[in-house]
Design a protein around this nucleic acid. Structure first.
Lengths: 245, 245
DNA sequence: TAGTGGTCTAGACCACGAC
DNA sequence: TCGTGGTCTAGACCACTAC
């Protein structure tokens, strides 16, 4: 039997020490004991706290760093990743200009209301029937021109007063700063669709013009789906870029 | 000054030992000294050969493993990644059914000819003016139905007799097995377009029907662009799936 | 049983940033 | 100058595979 850090709550299968350390540290971030931007204790201090060697802590930190949960700087220390609006925007925003350059992105709010979740929202957000969501509808401008018609749904339970906030261009920093919810990854499904009447009104394309629809579920650090977003994009001047390794 | 494995050809900036070991091993694969499917020497043997510790070799192998260049099995050994047709297909093929399931993929060849590279092909493949390319045009079927109109261009210099081969459903295994060219990553640009007359003839969609266009440049182990592929996809029954971490 | 990769430890030195 | 993370080594033990 492999060594366990917390025998009391040990899972049925034993996992490597560094994985356990990684999970304990992730838990501290989820629970808010370590907050975004905060400096973590040094590797040696953590090793002492967890009762493992410095090399094991390092392996855990390297894993967290690979998932963008912490950032490390030689000579300075290790910090909980903070969602800087600009960096976060482009971490999850994959449209680039025809020349490959990042566009300037702005937003124009169309509406922000709460309502009873429909079937798709229940499924995409993993909510119980009858749950309330907050819906944001907006237009996003790329390099100054209307280009994306965006529909966002989030559970009202997690973001209680979001409908009374000023909606910023980059939402994930707000989710983190005001509601303590960190988006760690996202699953996107893309398809081509014809513009509908709403799209025509929102971004001024022709009826049935080909649009790239991005269906995104954003997942938080603890694995819950915390946002569902539908972005319908005019791709005459921009492309969705994806690198496959 | 950091220790260098090959002082004679040392680059201006010194890099970590494990990076140098990784590059030496990658070079052995590119040069064909280690071929796909072959078992590498054990970590201790490699450490002795390179004159470094086993831990350093391990770090290099872990990096190669992370890039899918080698695969490791506890108790069996480390092997050069071989492009198994089925696995490779889905490594680079991101269309899934509406339910998230992998579709059955087949191909119907329309044409395969050589010709003088046009301007776009020169740019996308990094070829000198006047270079010859081999062009493949085909339809791909998802779950039995015509769904993708695909145009593929590769440098004739690298794939000399490709136009006299039977074109398989999964090309990258052929590139590797017959021409010694391993695709290690790809860069894709997606946009929505309206079906043109060629698309209509090829996959039977309506004129101007919205299609998802995937523009892919495949990059080989040594960093050269070795294939340019344009896939125009009917996304009424399938989605392009992308996970952002 | 022998050999492989996977984990864990302990300790050394280096590169970098803050002071 | 000190403390941080980054690299490198050496050695121990474990888990798995093949024989």
């Amino acid at each position: 039997m492999r060594r366990q850090l917390n025998p009391s709550e040990a899972p049925p299968t034993s996992r490597p020490l560094y994985v356990q350390v990684k999970e304990l540290m992730t838990r501290r971030i989820i629970d808010g004991a370590w907050t975004p931007g905060m400096a973590l204790p040094s590797e040696f201090t953590l090793a002492e706290q967890f009762g493992v060697s410095q090399g094991t802590v390092r392996k855990a930190l390297d894993a967290l760093s690979g998932e963008n949960i912490v950032v490390r700087f030689q000579g300075r220390g290790t910090f909980v990743a903070a969602h800087d609006p600009h960096d976060t925007l482009f971490h999850f925003f994959h449209l680039v200009g025809t020349d490959g350059a990042r566009p300037r992105v702005e937003s124009r709010l169309l509406s922000c209301r709460r309502g009873k979740a429909n079937r798709e929202e229940l499924r995409n957000l993993g909510l119980p029937a009858g749950a309330t969501v907050i819906r944001i509808r907006r237009v996003r401008l790329l390099d100054g021109a209307d280009a994306i018609h965006e529909l966002i749904s989030v559970p009202a339970e997690l973001f209680d007063d979001l409908d009374r906030q000023t909606i910023p261009n980059e939402l994930y920093s707000l989710y983190q700063a005001r509601y303590g919810v960190t988006v760690s990854r996202a699953i996107e499904h893309l398809r081509a669709v014809g513009a509908d009447a709403e799209d025509v009104k929102a971004i001024g394309v022709d009826m049935q013009a080909p649009l790239l629809e991005i269906d995104r579920r954003a997942i938080s650090l603890d694995g819950r789906a915390i946002e569902w977003r539908l972005s319908r994009c005019d791709t005459r001047l921009h492309r969705y870029q994806s690198e496959v390794v």
